[in-house]
Design a protein around this nucleic acid. Sequence first.
DNA 1: CTGCCAGTTCAAGTGAACTTGAGGTCAAGG
DNA 2: CCTTGACCTCAAGTTCACTTGAACTGGCAG
Lengths: 145, 145
Amino acid sequence: MRDVDIAEVAELSGVPASTLRFYEEKGLIASHGRRGLRRLFDPGVLDRLALIALGRASGFSLDEIARMFAPDGKPRIDRKMLSAKADELDRTIRRLNAMRDGLRHAAVCPAPSHMECPTFRRLLRVAAAGKMETPKTTKKSRRKL
Amino acid sequence: MRDVDIAEVAELSGVPASTLRFYEEKGLIASHGRRGLRRLFDPGVLDRLALIALGRASGFSLDEIARMFAPDGKPRIDRKMLSAKADELDRTIRRLNAMRDGLRHAAVCPAPSHMECPTFRRLLRVAAAGKMETPKTTKKSRRKL
DNA sequence: CTGCCAGTTCAAGTGAACTTGAGGTCAAGG
DNA sequence: CCTTGACCTCAAGTTCACTTGAACTGGCAG
């Protein structure tokens, strides 16, 4: 199997064809030729897409990810950048942990109103004070909208 | 101090006036009257904003947060919803942990290319397979754009 | 009294990451 | 040969959470 067409890539990767075209336009992936109108990709595009998924999942923007590939196409990942992102992720995780604990508590808190629960109000202060990463919605959940 | 005007609320909460107007339009907060054109808020709006910040930080959308307030204005928070969100947060945290570990490893991995590192490739599979929450950018970092 | 400045409205713009729609093309199957 | 259906392009639309701009208003310092 030398070349895969866009439908196969979509099938194998789970990434919609429209997204693949979009990624190509953005320079994140490259098609290798055409069969008729149909784009043909090198099977390596699947690794590339995995790399992109990893980047997105780690909080990199598509532009940042694009910069992680050398002009020759091979991944040229800046290790310092990875460290920095790991640290950032760490901070996010810590805050989300606090949030989760707070939510968990609020869910079982016996106080008649959440505003009367000291734990809840402490959580509120944390949320209001510390500027936090907003986790935002999932790809999946956004699709539902 | 019975009423606070929008500038004071902005000052005290750190939320820009434009956002306060936007929140009012969305029904997330309510102004109590006017002095001239100027909105006057009840000081309780600060608690409300803290609540909104908490919701956002926990991954709720503004619409979801709006639904957490009864028509009478008092927070009417569904404990089951909180639990569910806490669980969701938990799953997100687990995935982010895996991502962070992977990034951390990739940052120090001695393999000449990341693609040759088994750990990195395992990470890639995780990222490609499990559909993950995308942490996205911070409010702060978005402001910079 | 008057001009300033911080507020006001409403519409439109932003940015990320895609998706959708209209209209077109082409390789292949009947 | 001709239809069909999956792909193509390009532009525009979508969502979320705001921000920005233009045009306007009005309380208050001088």
